[in-house]
Write a protein that binds this DNA or RNA. Structure first.
Lengths: 234, 234
DNA sequence: CGCTCTTTTGATCGGAGTCAAAGTCGGTGG
DNA sequence: CCACCGACTTTGACTCCGATCAAAAGAGCG
């Protein structure tokens, strides 16, 4: 069942990019956005694969992606999510290495492909933009380091609570307090760094503590403050 | 017992910095290196503390630092080490946030302080340098993501083997195959993300398997290939 | 030379992983 | 529209890795 999607124009793409990176001129934005480098991808489509040589990066116009690494025994570890306004894959472009992560669509997404050559050219010609990119990389670095500490020191329960809180903050709740991001138990486990069954047991526990409700894959958050409290190991 | 150290000149500092960042002119290097912003710090001295507002970053002229976060219950998680030629603390400067890590001296070190204003000025005036900094941040980001996956998926034994291998590659061995970096069992535990006792038990195990020897804090590596093998969970 | 920090070893306990099996949901095609 | 299939979820039982607590031995330093 193909959905009928109206694809955005280049101007719309450029406008959205301009909201994430404020130091680019209209001319520079126009260079980035031309028609044949935009793509609509449905859930579970791969954007790029770990180990592949990607020559550019992707700007998320809409939708949600997961960025993950495949560890020993093929188990995936989700590193982060990318949503509207985010840039994925630039690390590999900058370092001219093969991708060290994979990216897959979680919520149907519209992506703009940005060739690496154009990106590096912009960095070198516009140092304000370069500064914005440094900031972006440093922000991700800070988050990665934080999560490294959490995963090394907190219990699974604390981490799961934290992950749910983060997802709520990043993607929000609908009018019924149901999380906007669609995520399987297995994916939750792959963020938290635990087994699927452990996530399920803890979610049951949260349910019996009236912290949340679930019907299938839909999670309704009832007591977010309690989750925040749990996430901060006492 | 104060050691007698001959401190390097600004020219020497600038030269070493130029080896790490190749796109700076001599003039630009001279701006970075003036006399009163250099410091000699002994083992266990704090360079900066998590939560403090640092207005600049530090260039490691010599010695070794550990960069760590303090997690719940005060347990430290070592994020990385910095050695000769590395730059620490620039993340906070770039993002203009309080430091989200602490840095402490492991091997007596000579550090050059680089005011944030000068760093950002250089980034904005020299986009090639900006590009080098982006690369640096992206490199650290890639490493952090890798380690995140390892810590989430590998066993303590695998991670300890990996950490030891990394330390050997980064800091080398002396003529007796003894590791150049001085590190306590507790610090090893704080990299691996485990308890001190677990590290001790595993090192005993490695000793009985003739993979390494230890006398006090000195570790002699006998069978590095075996360590590499262990680190790659089968 | 004594004090403190670090290392080592032993014993115990519990969190979380694994395996197995049943139940549920959603989508597809007849 | 309904039946079926595969993917996802749930629950139970069991095991074990690794954390914690305790106590002794060793090393480094003033």
């Amino acid at each position: 069942m193909k959905k009928d999607i109206t694809l955005p124009s280049c101007e719309q793409g450029a406008r959205k990019f301009g909201m994430s990176f404020k130091k680019l001129s209209q001319d520079e934005l126009n260079i980035l956005f031309f028609n044949n480098n935009m793509d609509y991808l449905e859930r579970s489509k791969i954007v790029y694969n770990e180990g592949s040589r990607i020559k550019g990066c992707f700007f998320v116009y809409s939708g949600i992606l997961k960025v993950y690494k495949t560890g020993a025994e093929g188990k995936e570890q989700i590193i982060r999510f990318a949503k509207e306004g985010d840039l994925v894959g630039f690390r590999s472009v900058i370092n001219q290495e093969v991708a060290c992560t994979s990216a897959k669509v979680i919520n149907d997404a519209i992506l703009w492909y940005i060739p690496g050559s154009i990106l590096t050219q912009l960095i070198k010609s516009n140092s304000e933009f370069a500064f914005e990119l440094i900031k972006l990389a440093c922000k991700e670095l800070g988050e990665s380091n934080c999560y490294l500490t959490d995963i090394a020191q907190k219990t699974v329960k604390e981490r799961l609570a934290e992950v749910i809180v983060n997802l709520v903050e990043d993607f929000g709740l609908d009018q019924n307090s149901i999380m906007n991001i669609t995520i399987t138990r297995e994916e939750l486990a792959n963020i938290v760094g635990t087994a699927t069954e452990s996530v399920i047991r803890l979610i049951s526990e949260f349910k019996s503590e009236k912290i949340l409700e679930s019907r299938g894959r839909r999670l309704r958050i009832i007591d977010k403050p309690k989750l925040v409290e749990i996430s901060k190991s006492f």
